[in-house]
Amino acid sequence: MGDLGPFWLSLRVASVATLLDVALGGPLALVLARGRFHGKSLMAGVLMLPLVLPPTVLGYLLLMLLGRRSPVGGWIEHAFGGALVFHWTGAAVAAAVAAFPLFLIPARSAFETVDPMLEDAARLLGRHEFSVLWSVTLPLAWRGLVAGVVLAFARALGDFGATLMVAGDIPGRTQTAALAIYDAVQAGDNARAGGLAVLISIVSIAALMVAQFRGRPRGAGA
């Protein structure tokens, strides 16, 4: 099978992408679940866009947004001393955006299933907002949040189009497993394509099993 670089890169890209989704999507899911404000459905709709846009369109928009000549890309290059585009971090951002709704949707419904009265009961017992979130909301929403993490991770692990547009397909630098499999098939190297495919599948299935195991309802059975 040879070089495992693309496989490790995929794991790294998918992990960072999932972290980004949780960090951004967690608060947004909470706002969508609990908030009452004008423009909420518009906001929800915009956040769902990655689900319906073709990955190449998504990647193109990101390239426009993050490219060196755009204000955002220029600022990033200035602030961090390097550009996102054609770098593995760009692949992570692209995968994060593509996978974002897959975390947001289950996370939002997980928060919505937590009875707000339980949170009020916790507040009346003297707990601050963060404590309510940590001791009541998160433990009760846990199952749905884990499902969202697994879905987002799996989606990020397999991203092709958006990653290709933003980060390119540079062997050893931005070539993730999904891209390497495509290149190997193009080059007639079925052994390599098959080996990477098996590895990626094992990781995806393992993640799913972890989610099933961790996702057993808590509180039932003493």
Binding site: A121, R123, L124, G126, S135, L140, G219
Partner: peptide, 20 residues
Amino acid sequence: SLRRRGIGMIYQDDLLFPHL
């Protein structure tokens, strides 16, 4: 703030924390 009112409350749907 409701946290500092020193008021206890019980409810029709008991509202016990199911995970604790």
